[in-house]
Design a protein around this nucleic acid. Structure first.
Length: 771
DNA sequence: AAAAAAT
């Protein structure tokens, strides 16, 4: 029915394609139009006036695992108990609260929920309530899973057994889960410890908390000091665990055996690695103890109607003049309108949606409620989610709001705990978000603002089903912001389904982003690819090499190292710890060449990438623009080199045209002048020692024990990776009081350095670029 | 093909 909910645009090409493929995979389910009717009035401020959605049924059914845990209380520490009692009450309140409204609401949501459960009623209800998409989605997912999985080789192996049961009785999952996840318990332990530590910290932070103590909790969520304390605690925790539940330890150890090919063999190693990964947002805490900052009378952000606190915080970093995309979208977004924003790569889209989002939440003064965030920012990759989280952190911080990063590869515990405590802004990747939704750890009832970053990418096949799963749970009267450097028709389905009377802001043409760049398309012979790649990559400054596959990335990185160019691969086949370390090292400057799949194609900001080298041509012109956009950020210069084999020439020419570039491919051979013109030089040819490389990207366990194979001679705690103390380079920190000093010390790991260098005020050239 | 959840 509601096919014409929103403005015009009746094209359904994408939809059809998607439908087709879904139907092909899952023949038993019919097709249906997009559901979600959006009765919502357009363009009004929803946030303030919005009623709280009646949550739903008792959680008990939905989240057996939690209840179970509660029941099991024995092991719980004291803190835990307090915690529990606390939570118990809250929950009950919640429930009671809902009592009345729930009924109204039930038709709406209560049932949906039930669908997730294995119960019978569900079937009855489902037919109607359930959107078709949802079903397709589900079937789809089942299939996709299988197809998709191969790439996650490891998981495949691991999941083998499970996949059986899983698939057949997905609804049953609740039960299996119980058996399956001993590790949660362990994590519970971790959680406990944290609350312990928290206490110690409390005194520490008394000051900042006065307002409504966002900092305390937020920090807690982020585990900021964890890396710090962890060290002291480590042994401790080990013991506790052993005493408490040896059986679980054993089990999980067994579990990690499946990671045969990887360094961490023990559970502890894996866990430490996880924690490390989860740890890296932490270093970016803003320091609010700094004195007030002059906000110039002509501050452009103030003029846009943003609150003083935000304006001041931005000014503190030298950000006083909004970029075009920001000037264009912020007023409309502040007014509560749905926005489609297209701004060139590196043009500050994060702030364009981040600032109005924060502002509106601030104005709305929504009560913070467990598991019910008020805003959601969805991104296609974990790294991007982290980057956004870090970029917004200081702004969220000064407004007393809380945000939380919810993404795969990071600990569930911190995420769930944070959600339970109440979070305003959720920054998420689709998979983990859906996971947490299924677990009942997060609910969308109170989401008032939704942002889709890289929206066109999210609208592509592989993502669509997953994001609609989440988006369908969001009240339809909220505000929605879709952003990307390339917004094409692919997003029509999304726009139609989820946006109401959107305003489109397109600053420049999508191709304007390429202006600061030199583009070279080199026609080469296959046998020269390896050498030419090395020559182009061997230069001053940072280089990002893009290739099509994960194996390709690994191989090319290896080949580069063999030729004397220090390079490391970044792709989704690595665990999060590895991903973080590699990207951290690249941001850091310790790794000059990053060889990445398209995981790094969008949104990732690294300063001073001088060259983007595309060893494999991009899939389409949009990818060309996004990949290229890793260089020449925020007005900087950059070079883009694309290698094309003879048979790829035509494709490349078309892409260049579509991208609006007037570039002709030129022939190139190793050592040739064309190459030199791009800054290429001949590498030493002396292979980089594997040890040196490993040290560069080694995880914390390698620090303690050495690499998996040669774990004999100890390499001191200063293996280059984690200069825990000292080793602080001179970068950054235009403002440094003792507090920052402390933070710097403990945040020195490569991993936890995200926005750090970006954030320093002494790099005017790139000011604001990280946003 | 990649990405996004894997206890």
């Amino acid at each position: 029915m509601p096919k014409h909910t929103s403005s015009g645009a009746p094209k359904k090409a994408r939809w059809t394609t998607e439908k087709k493929s879904a139907a092909a995979k899952k023949p038993h389910r019919g097709q249906g139009g997009p559901k979600t009717s959006r009765p919502a009035p357009a363009g009004t401020s929803h946030v303030g006036g919005r009623e709280w959605r009646a949550p739903r049924e008792d959680r008990r059914d939905d989240r057996p695992s939690f209840d179970r845990r509660d029941d099991r209380g024995e092991r719980r520490s004291f803190e835990r108990r307090d915690d529990r009692g606390d939570r118990g009450f809250q929950r009950r309140d919640d429930r009671g609260d809902r009592g009345f409204q729930r009924r109204d609401d039930r038709g709406d949501r209560g049932f949906q929920r039930r669908d997730d459960r294995p119960s019978f009623e569900r079937r009855d209800d489902r037919g109607e309530r359930r959107s078709f998409e949802r079903r397709d989605d589900r079937g789809d997912r089942g299939f996709q899973r299988r197809d998709d999985r191969p790439s996650f080789e490891r998981r495949d192996d691991r999941g083998e057994r499970r996949s059986f049961e899983r698939r057949d009785d997905r609804g049953d999952r609740g039960f299996q889960r119980r058996d399956d996840r001993p590790s949660f318990e362990r994590r519970d332990d971790r959680g406990e410890r944290r609350s312990f530590e928290r206490r110690d910290d409390r005194g520490d932070r008394g000051f900042q908390r006065r307002d409504d103590r966002p900092s305390f909790d937020r920090r807690d969520d982020r585990g900021e000091r964890r890396s710090f304390e962890r060290r002291d605690d480590r042994g401790d925790r080990g013991f506790q665990r052993r005493d408490d539940r040896p059986s679980f330890d054993r089990r999980s150890d067994r579990g990690t055996d499946r990671f045969v090919d990887r360094a961490p063999v023990s559970f502890e190693d894996a866990e430490v690695e996880r924690m490390d990964a989860d740890n890296w947002t932490k270093a970016t805490r803003a320091d609010i103890s700094d004195g007030p900052v002059e906000v110039a009378a002509d501050n452009g952000f103030a003029a846009l109607g943003l609150p003083e606190r935000l304006v001041e915080r931005l000014a503190r970093e030298g950000i006083t003049t909004p970029f075009p995309i920001q000037s264009a979208t912020i007023p409309d977004a502040l007014a509560g309108r749905d926005v489609l924003g297209r701004g060139q790569t590196g043009s500050g889209k994060t702030l364009a949606f981040g600032l109005p989002l924060i502002t509106r939440l601030l104005q709305a003064e929504l009560p913070r409620r467990p598991r019910k965030p008020h805003a959601l920012i969805l991104t296609p990759t974990r790294e991007l989610a982290m980057q956004i989280s870090d970029a917004l952190e200081p702004l969220v911080h000064v407004t007393g709001l809380r945000h939380k990063l919810v993404a795969g590869g990071l600990s569930y515990t911190t995420q769930i705990n944070a959600l339970n405590k109440g979070v305003d802004i959720l920054i998420a990747t689709p998979g983990r978000l859906n996971d947490l939704l299924e677990r009942g750890a997060v609910e969308m009832d109170d989401i008032a603002i939704t942002v889709l970053d890289e929206a066109d990418h999210m609208a592509e096949m592989g993502f669509m089903a997953e994001i609609t799963t989440s988006l369908d749970k969001i009240p339809s009267d909220g505000q929605r912001l879709l952003f990307s450097a390339t917004l094409d028709r692919g997003i029509d389905t999304l726009v139609e389904k989820y946006l109401t009377d959107p305003v489109t802001h397109s600053t420049n043409d999508a191709t304007a982003s390429v202006e600061g760049m030199d583009h070279h398309v080199l026609l080469i012979d296959p046998q020269h690819k390896k050498v030419i790649t090395a020559e182009v990559a061997n230069r001053e400054g940072r280089t990002v090499v893009f290739c099509r596959t994960k194996l390709g990335a690994d191989r090319i990185a290896l080949q580069l190292r063999e030729q004397g160019v220090m390079a490391a691969a970044l792709h989704g086949g690595l665990n999060q710890g590895q991903r973080n370390r590699v990207l951290g090292a690249f941001r850091d400057g310790t790794l000059p060449v990053l060889v990445a799949t398209d995981v790094a194609a969008r949104g990732i900001h690294v300063d001073d990438v001088s060259v983007v080298l595309q060893v494999d041509p991009p899939a389409d012109h949009k990818d060309y623009l996004h990949r290229s956009g890793r260089t020449a950020r925020a007005g900087d210069k950059g070079t883009v080199v694309t290698l094309a084999l003879p048979h790829q020439r035509k494709t490349m020419e078309r892409q260049l045209k579509d991208a609006g570039l007037d570039i002709a491919p030129v022939r190139a051979t190793p050592g040739d002048a064309t190459l030199a013109a791009t800054g290429a030089t001949t590498p030493s040819g002396v292979a980089i020692a594997e040890d040196d490389f490993q040290r560069l990207i080694a995880g914390p366990k390698a620090q303690r024990r050495g690499p998996a194979g040669s774990r004999g001679p100890r390499q001191g705690s200063r293996g280059g990776f984690r200069p825990h103390h000292g080793g602080r380079d001179s970068r950054s920190d235009s403002r440094g009081d003792d507090r920052r000093g402390r933070r710097g010390d403990r945040a020195e790991g490569l991993v936890s350095r995200w926005g750090d260098d970006d954030r320093s005020g002494d790099r005017p050239a790139r000011r604001g670029a990280r946003f």
